[in-house]
Structures are given as C-alpha cells and as structure tokens.
Design a protein around this nucleic acid. Structure first.
Length: 744
DNA sequence: CTTCCGTATGTTTTT
DNA sequence: CATACGGAAG
C-alpha cells in the first residue's frame, strides 16, 4: 500500500476495505507532498462513490485542503474536460447533456427522417446498439460492417452517423459522448492531451472491474507516459464482483492489467473485516466454481458465527410470509430493521415483499426504484427550465409544449419541427415566427402565442429573481403544478411533493445554469432519510458496496437466479456473472445470510414449478444449515411445506430433503404451467392477522375515505383493530395497517 | 386532440 | 397477471 509510484493493481475482495485503500492513498500522496490536490485524478463509477470518497479524504486530511477538483465519476470528469475544449470536438462549451429519454426521442426522429419504419426498428433498440458501440469506444466509422448491417437492413452505421450529426446541431452530447468525445479530443489534439499528462501526477480508479472499453481507452490515453517512465496509476477492484458485463463492463480490463501496465505491482487484499467465517466460507466456495478469476481467498479473524441457512417454501407468497415472520422475530430480539435487507434478483420479486410488509405493518424502504430524475414530473419541470434557459433546446421544448395539455398536439409540433429544420432555427424561434403567419390554425396559433409570450417573460425574469422562486414561478404560470393538483390519482400527491423537493434542492446552487449542469450528471434522488428504522428491499445489483447484519436472499431458483436470459444470451460467461452476483449477495451479510427458494413461482402470470438454483448446490455443506421453513406454514395438509431435516442437511453436494426431492420431481414430471396456484394456502393469514391485531381501536370507521401512499384513494370496507380492509379506487381491495393510511 | 381499448411483453441499471 | 404502448374511434 505504500507503493506510490508506478502502476498498482489492488485486488480488493469483498469487505476488505477497498475505499479505505483509495482514501488513505490519496491522503498519503498529499501528506508526503508528492502532489497537490488538483494534480490527482480520482475516478469512480457512481456519484455516490465519488461523494463518499470526497468525504473520507476530507476527514483524513482535514479541512486544510480545498476539495479535489478532479475527483468524480468518469462522466463528470469527462464533461469537465470537454467543456474546456468543446470547440475542438464541434460543440459549444455550454452544450446540453442528454439523458436516455432524450436520446431515444432524438433517435426516433432520426429514424423517421431516414424513412425507416420506426415500428420495425424501434428507436429503443437503436439506442441500445449505439450505446453499446459507444461503450466499446467506436465512432460511426469504426463500427464493424457486420454490426452496422444488423440494424435496419444495413442502415445502422448511417443512423449512428446521422444521430451524431443531429447532436452537434443541437449542441448536445449523450452520456456515451462524454467519454468518446474526450477520447477523440485526446487523439486528435496531442497538445491538449499532454497538458493533462502534466497535470495528473497520480491517477486512481475505483471499481476497475466495471470499466468498459471506452473508459479503459480514456484511462490509457491519460496514463500514457514518456518512454521509460511508468504511470502512477492505481486501480482498485475485484474481479469476483464484476456484475455489469451486460452493460459493457469488461472484466478483461482487470484481468489483463499487468499486461497493459508492465511492471505493475499487484496487491491482494484478502482479509475481510465484514463477515463471519461461515459466510465467507460459503461465498468463497461458491465463487470458486468460476473459471478465469485472478483468485483470492478471503479470510477473517472473526468467529465462525451462524451458518448460512437454506430454506425452501411452497411458493413465493409463502416465501414472503416466512421471511416477514423471521424479520419480526429478529425485531423482537432487538435487531434494528436498518440492519436487515432483502436482496432480490429481479425487481418484480419486490412486490410480494412489499405487499406482505404493508399487511404486517413492517416498515420497509425500496432502494433503487425509479430514480428521482427519471420521474415524469421532474423531467417535465427540468424541460421547462431548460427551454427557458436554452432556447435552442428543442428536445426540452418538445417535451413540454403540450404538458399540461393545451391543444398543441402532434400536428402543430410537426409544423414547428419542419419549419425549424428547413430554416435551420430552433423550434422556439420557429414558433415565434409562425404565430405571426397564417400557417397555423387560429386556436393553436393563439395558444402557442401565449406560450411563447410566457417563455419570453420567464427568460427576462431569470436574472432578476432568486432561481428557486423563478422555478416556482415557471411551474405555476405554466399550469404545470395545477395539472397535478387537479389529478386525484394515487401518485399525484407524491409528484407534487417531488416538485417541491426539486425546487428546494435548488437552493444549494448558485444559479439555474449551475443547477441544470448538476442535475444532468448527478440526477440521483436526494438522500432519503435513513434515520427511520426500516427493512431494505433492493436488487442484488443495487446492493454492491452495501452491507447488512442480516441478509435474506430469496428466489434462488433455476431460471430466476441464475436468470434464464443470462444463460441463454451469454452462456458460460452469463452463468459466471450470475454466480458473481450470488457471491456479492452473500458477502453483503455481516452476521446472517439466509437463502430461500420456492417450489412454485408465478412467471408472466403463469404458475411454474421451479427447481432450486444450482448455486444452492454449490454452497458447501460445512458452512450451511438447511432449515425447516417457518413452522407456521408447514403444518396444514398433505402438500404442506416440507420439513428440512436439520439432522441430515446434505449428502454430498446433493440435497436429499423432501422439499428438494419434490421440487426436482415436479420439474422432471414436466409439471405444466397452470393458471391456478398449485395449492391453496391454509387459512393461517386470518388467524395470524387477528392474533397480531393490537386491539387498539382505529380512528377510522367503515365507509371513511382514506389515502394510502402506495394504493391511493379508497374507502374503508372493514376494520379489525389496527388492520383495515380498504377498497381502493385503483388498486382494489387490500388489507393494510392504519398507520399507512391518512384521511382523504 | 383526446380517450379508450386491444395487444405485446415481460432482468439486472449508471451516467 | 399487469403494465405499457400503440392504434383506432370519438
């Protein structure tokens, strides 16, 4: 770790203190005077990681050093560089950054402009292709002919080129460009590149296993050195935690680090400070099934602790109930809900848990749902701001020209669009010109005139008011807030709340322009109050980098985990990535990891018999307990939940328990998917609900109109202590706990 | 231009 | 099953 000079690869296993390595290294470089803050380039993948690193460096070196300007995500640093040299890549320095949604809409236009049927060749698909090419560092000219052919019978490359051209006219860049254009900048302008060579004395990269080709090329360019010199580049990562291959990450980057940087020092961190012995043992054994690893074996000085448990359930509903019960049991033993997480493979699995927890009145939070910036209301609001601030931002203008509905539909937009393209002016300007002509029908013409007057007025006010008041004003005068206030659906209240939050978050910025720049890059939700005690529900992907005392891992079934699609599309590599995901899941646990699988699961609405995941088989018997599912569910009927015999957990690596056998038999018998659940649950729910009722009289009465944060408005049908049965207008009849309810 | 109904389609997700 | 999107009718 003291090695400061030359290339260093730190292979940091899960829970070995990866972030600590990076932060102490930075602190060390600064403390020893080897460089000053602005000579250090430190890149991360996510804003969260960047923020965390910044904070931790700050703590280590004290307030004496002003922040590090070159600590950030690949993209944030890319933008910073591009803005300085924008003209060299055909942009102006105030270029707009498009997100995925803008991207797709623009591509749709490009596809249609080429006279291609957008239905046969969806924009979405082209966006994915182009994204893939950009991830691999390919410009339109460099796309392999075969691949360019694959879209729209050979138009793929052309469309990519046309799209890039459109971006330049719009003075815009998409996320991929932030790196790709940087690469082009460096390649075409050696002078610029060497300026950065001189500047960056030390380079550090976090999560190196997640880098894609473009990021790799970018880094290589920056790490180029004079002959004989070795770059001071330090990459930290863990090949066993590479789970973003489907997004362009190349594990290869980390596997061949030593070839790329001859004479590199490789440091392995294998001492784990997070988990108990049994958890590490199980995870290590599992991941050893992968080939092509750099190979690490984690160890700990901690106790062996509890074995990893494996439990089966009849179906996903029972899985949710059993896990809910276990969590309540843990809670009674004094465990904080914040220390408990449920890690799922696919987000559809979350719903069952949510429903169950709502019924139980067990507080939970879903991590990683739709991002703040992705929400329609936020994007609409931002589009208003963008259109006001940057009158050439056609995409923003198009987005909100008819939101709220004001009678300016496709026909009108098309006219503006055509005129703009023909005359080479932005749509807003086209609109100003056209309202003075006879080209538009009287009604839309008047509406459009009013709208343009508003935009004109707002643009004038931008300078004179505080930007948050300014934002508020636009949202109100445009009728946007009004639109949601009139909306009585479940989400409307939340949307208004989000808008308020958006305006509130602007306070932290100098002005509107600064805010827009930030939001286009950062775009993640304002930190949710982690202060309340709640169970976390998140995907395995979302769990990377996090840790919890107790981790529940439901849905370990063939087809779901490993996911069938991963297997089909990427074969062995896909399987190995799934296995790494399992490894990530297990290693999130500090004290308890609890694996679950169900024998039946509803997939696409049909009940399917499922087989336990091969990963269950790959867990070593010596670190695992096969446990009986919660007894409450096992006792009713012949087909009731099987018991797993504690006394004979395994024979070899094959399970011999009844549930296991039955699950396999079900598969082998070729159980056909049915429309009906394979079996009705015993009526334990009612008994349990009654038993659990607090008896406290509810403040509500039958027939009251209420509002539920998740289900919206509804009417109370029954009351049972603090458990209410509510007929929701949209969500139907649900049983909920009254603490989740407000009077409507 | 809006509303409603039918059909298609169901991983993982950051910037 | 449930939702999301696109096409046809009002």
């Amino acid at each position: 770790m003291e090695t400061l000079d030359g290339p260093v690869l730190v292979l940091a296993g899960a829970g070995t203190g990866k972030t600590r390595v990076l932060t102490t290294r930075i602190a060390h470089i600064l403390a020893t005077g080897r460089a000053v803050p602005h000579q250090i380039l430190a890149v991360t993948f996510t804003n969260k990681a960047a923020r965390e690193m910044r904070e931790r460096v700050g703590v280590l070196i004290g307030q004496s050093v002003e922040g590090m300007p070159w600590l950030g995500t690949f993209h944030a640093i890319g933008v910073k560089i591009l803005r300085r040299h924008a003209e060299l890549v055909g942009l102006k320095s105030n270029f707009t950054i498009l997100d995925t949604d803008d991207q797709v809409r623009l591509m749709k236009q490009v596809i249609e402009a080429q006279g291609i049927d957008e239905k046969r060749w969806p924009a979405r698909q082209l966006a994915n292709a182009i994204d893939g090419w950009k991830n691999r560092g390919l410009t339109p000219q460099q796309v392999p002919a075969g691949e360019a052919m694959s879209f729209a019978t050979g138009k793929g490359g052309e469309l990519y080129a046309a799209y890039q051209a459109r971006l330049k006219t719009l003075n815009a860049a998409d996320f991929g460009d932030l790196l790709l254009e940087c690469i082009r900048l460096f390649r075409d302008n050696p002078g610029v590149l060497s300026e950065y060579h001189r500047r960056f004395r030390f380079m550090l990269v976090d999560e190196y296993q997640d880098t894609n080709v473009a990021q790799y090329l970018w880094l290589r360019l920056l790490a180029q050195t004079q002959a004989g010199e070795k770059p001071n580049v330090c990459c930290v990562g863990d090949d066993d935690q590479s789970i973003y291959g489907w997004r362009g990450a190349e594990v290869d980057n980390i596997l061949r680090f030593e070839k790329d940087f001859p004479g590199a020092t490789v440091i392995r961190l294998e001492r784990n400070y997070r988990s108990t012995g049994h958890i590490l043992g199980a995870a290590g054994h599992l991941i050893a099934n992968n080939e092509g690893r750099l190979g690490k074996t984690l160890f700990t000085d901690d106790v062996d602790g509890e074995r990893v448990t494996v439990a089966g359930s009849w179906d996903s509903g029972e899985e949710a109930r059993a896990i809910g019960d276990e969590i309540e049991a843990l809670q009674r033993q004094g465990h904080a809900l914040n220390d408990i997480a449920i890690l799922v493979r696919a987000s559809f699995q979350m719903r069952e848990f949510e429903d169950r927890f709502v019924t139980l009145g067990l507080p939970y939070r879903v991590i990683g749902g739709p991002r703040f910036y992705e929400r329609a209301e936020i994007r609409d609001a931002l589009a208003y701001f963008r259109a006001t601030m940057q009158p050439a931002d056609d995409l923003a203008f198009e987005r909100i020209v008819n939101v709220p509905k004001r009678g300016l539909g496709d026909a009108t937009v098309q006219i503006l669009h055509d005129y703009g393209r023909r005359e080479g002016v932005p749509m807003m300007q086209a609109a100003r010109i056209l309202v003075e002509t006879e080209e538009l029908k009287p009604k839309p013409r008047q509406t459009l005139r009013n709208l343009m007057t508003s935009f004109g007025r707002w643009a004038g006010q931008a300078e004179t008011m505080r930007h948050q008041d300014f934002a508020q004003l636009i949202l109100e005068e445009s009728g946007y807030t009004d639109m949601w206030q009139k909306d009585r659906t479940a989400e409307a209240a939340g949307r208004l709340e989000n808008l308020k939050e958006l305006v509130r978050s602007m306070e932290a910025f100098e002005n509107m322009a600064g805010f827009l720049e930030h939001i286009s890059l950062v775009m993640d939700a304002s930190e949710e109050g982690a202060s309340e005690d709640k169970v976390s529900i998140l995907t395995l992907h979302g769990a990377k980098g996090l840790e919890y005392d107790t981790v529940f891992l439901p849905g370990w079934e063939e087809g779901l985990f490993p996911h069938q699609r991963s297997l089909d599309e990427n074969g062995r590599a896909g399987l190995e990535e799934e296995r790494r995901l399992a490894y990530v899941g297990l290693t999130r646990a500090r004290r308890r990891a609890k694996v679950w699988f169900a024998s039946n699961r509803r997939i696409h609405g049909l009940w399917q018999a499922t087989m336990p995941s091969r990963f269950v088989d790959e867990l070593p018997a010596s670190h695992v307990d096969v446990v009986e599912a919660s007894s409450a569910y096992g006792s009713g009927g012949t087909f009731a939940m099987s018991r797993f015999d504690r006394a004979q957990p395994f024979s070899g690596s094959t399970y011999s328990t009844p549930g296991w056998q039955r699950a396999k038999q079900n598969m082998e018998a070729g159980f056909k998917a049915t429309n009906a659940p394979p079996r009705r649950e015993p009526l334990t729910i009612e008994g349990e609900l009654v038993a659990r009722s607090t008896g406290t009289a509810s403040v509500y009465k039958v027939g009251d109109r209420v509002f539920h944060i998740k289900f919206g408005y509804g009417e109370i049908a029954e009351i049972d202590g603090n458990k209410l049965t509510v007929d929701f207008d949209k969500a139907g009849r649900k049983r909920v706990v009254d603490s989740f309810i407000d009077a409507a």
